[in-house]
Computed example of a mutant assay.
Amino acid sequence: MDISQILLLAFVQGLTEFLPISSSAHLVLAPLLFGYALQDLAFDVAVHLGTLVAVILYFRREIAAMVVAMSDSLATRQLTSPEARLGWMIVVATLPVVILGLPFKMLLEMLRADERMIALIIASTTIGFGLLLWWADARGRRVRDEYQVGWRDALFIGLLQAVAIIPGTSRSGITIMAGLLLGLTRRAAARFSFLLAIPTILMAGALETLHLVGSSEPVDWFALALGATLSFIVAYLTIHYFLQFVERVGMLPFVIYRVLLGGLILVLLYL
């Protein structure tokens, strides 16, 4: 990988991981649009690690409070604090992707070999789930915060997160959509989505790392380090400004972008 490709893909991952526009789709589309070969698995793991570190650092106080409260709840067997409740709801919401993630991933690997098919899937999910996000934003009551998420809510959000393994769906987009449908405010839906990203990215990264350990392919450590560092910086800034932006403006700008992007892909496919 040359420097321009590393910078492009790291920037794309850092920007799109937490915006409701699908990082996986952009990591597939960016090399195709700019004429690069599809990046290898090691680089994908590196830039995802950068975004994981970003979200952990951004929510470090909340995470520390949840860990302490969850430990106390195990000792007392009571959910007496909002922090403990939120922490356990993150665990509940993670369960569906643990169960469904591998079958979905195997299906995706089969589809990934056909560039035309994967592009059609990305176009369809980008438009379809973008419109669903707009509907949820318009319909949502926006009266609850993330500390009021119950176990049924968490399971619903987690089930939809499992669908986001399909490129173009957007993990953050579909979980924010679920939160909005459940009556969360835009900021609360985004915060729950971002906290839920931590165990999800961690598990996905661990599985891919195990796969890499058994591989004999050479590793470009400079590319991995540069990609992880840039994706970390961009992701941290994206989280900060998105949380400020989304409560005032809503999801419509991202919906418009998704519809235009999906439409452009379809036009390029059938020209």
Results as ranks from 00 to 15, higher is better:
E109I: 11
R186S: 02
I127W: 04
F34I: 10
I3R: 09
E109N: 11
A75I: 12
F104T: 13
M1L: 15
R85E: 01
L107P: 14
S73C: 06
L261T: 08
R191G: 00
Y36E: 01
G227D: 00
L29V: 11
E217T: 15
H48A: 03
A65K: 15
L182C: 06
M110P: 06
R258S: 09
R85P: 13
V47P: 05
M70V: 10
L111Y: 01
W221F: 14
S81V: 06
G130E: 01
G214W: 02
R258T: 11
L29M: 14
G183F: 01
V163A: 01
Q13I: 08
I121K: 03
V12W: 12
L38K: 13
E115P: 15
A69S: 09
L181R: 03
A42L: 03
Q148W: 07
M110H: 11
I166C: 05
A223P: 04
F11S: 13
A84T: 12
E83W: 00
L196E: 05
V55C: 04
V53A: 05
L266H: 03
H48D: 03
L120D: 05
Q13G: 02
M106H: 11
L32E: 02
L107M: 15
I21V: 15
F156N: 13
L27Q: 00
F156E: 09
Q244E: 11
A138D: 09
V12I: 15
T185A: 03
E208T: 07
M89F: 07
P82K: 08
I3K: 08
L268G: 03
A123Y: 00
W134P: 10
W151F: 14
T175W: 04
P199R: 08
R85W: 02
L27H: 03
R116D: 07
S22K: 09
R144C: 02
W151D: 07
L102K: 15
L7N: 07
D145Y: 05
